[in-house]
Design a protein around this nucleic acid. Sequence first.
DNA 1: TCCCTATATGCAAGGAGTTGAATAGGTGCA
DNA 2: TGCACCTATTCAACTCCTTGCATATAGGGA
Lengths: 202, 202
Amino acid sequence: MALRHAVLTALLEGEASGYQLSKRFDVSVAGFWSATPQQLYRELERLEEEGLLRARLIEQRRRPNKRAFTITAAGRRQLHEFTAQPTRPAALRDDLLVKVQAVDVGDRDAVREALATRLEHAQGKLALYDRLHENMLEGRTEDDYLRDAERIGPYLTLMGGRLYEQLQIDWCEAVLDVLAARVRSDAAPRNQERGAGRTRRP
Amino acid sequence: MALRHAVLTALLEGEASGYQLSKRFDVSVAGFWSATPQQLYRELERLEEEGLLRARLIEQRRRPNKRAFTITAAGRRQLHEFTAQPTRPAALRDDLLVKVQAVDVGDRDAVREALATRLEHAQGKLALYDRLHENMLEGRTEDDYLRDAERIGPYLTLMGGRLYEQLQIDWCEAVLDVLAARVRSDAAPRNQERGAGRTRRP
DNA sequence: TCCCTATATGCAAGGAGTTGAATAGGTGCA
DNA sequence: TGCACCTATTCAACTCCTTGCATATAGGGA
């Protein structure tokens, strides 16, 4: 797992400071990588030392000065080599699914609340990705964009991130329905044959 | 991020040795957590020392002896407490999406091959999850199962894992189509208005 | 004045995960 | 017989990640 490649890739979008890069990781990279600011700053230093990035100091008024990083030709070459190396499986670790797996012995109300929170969060991310989508297209059709754009990588990963958030929404809603139906059937055992009929399927 | 909770949860399915637990992590837990055998053995020892698991030695013929672990009441209590704690965001890190984000400067053929490999793998996982699904239902309808089963957590997470693999398939297919169309339009610039029409959307 | 937020960055300690390597008992096949 | 594979487990070194804390400049509000 190489944070360095995610950083190099994020810098393909253009020059950025450590702080700006951190913001990019909250947005365009969030769908497939995550890193703390501490990690990013350290990686930027390393990559600069290795000549894969170039730094320049920008003096600012009203804001602290900043150092902005640009990917070098050597950095691009390393990205090219990276794309030809064997690909690792995705690493996914999600507490929420552990909780759902354990829901039968856990605090069901708390799990439902966690699902509702995740649902809300996913809806926010989906809305953000839709805005990014529109910004990328700038009024063009997807077909036009994919045919004409110089770079399509960010568009393709945005679509992947979008699908992932939509999946989260669908699954959370379905699981909430199931758990609600179980609450009802637990509370009123005689009505077991009602309540399940309107449950969205996970 | 707590591997310990994933282990405790996996042991809700019943007693297991380290090796069997590792197999469970390849199957029923794979959709939302991953861990190496080394990690698992170490965690089992720790959890046993803390009284959250109980171990017994099983002597076998023709196979090495094994130690089998069972979750204790204290372990169940800890799971219950865990379900009531704040939930962390999912941690996802996926080299393939880094590669796709960098595809414009990378080795496009290698990226396509990586996508095809991931697609194949996702299809295999989906087939596995479908078999697990059928085994769980044992001929019952989903509604019957969700209403009557004592434990539904594993079913709900299996459905989440299934959705995730389906998403991977859809996205890989779409991206492969887009990249193939770009290859064609790169090789024959005059045919740009053909080729894009049959592209699956990411 | 203090707190909060934003931009901008850094240090340190500890834990979790990855990688490489290894051991043992057993079966099946060329 | 040696190799490959399966079951079953362990040690060690290193890297990456998480958490806690901190600094500086600036603006706004109670």
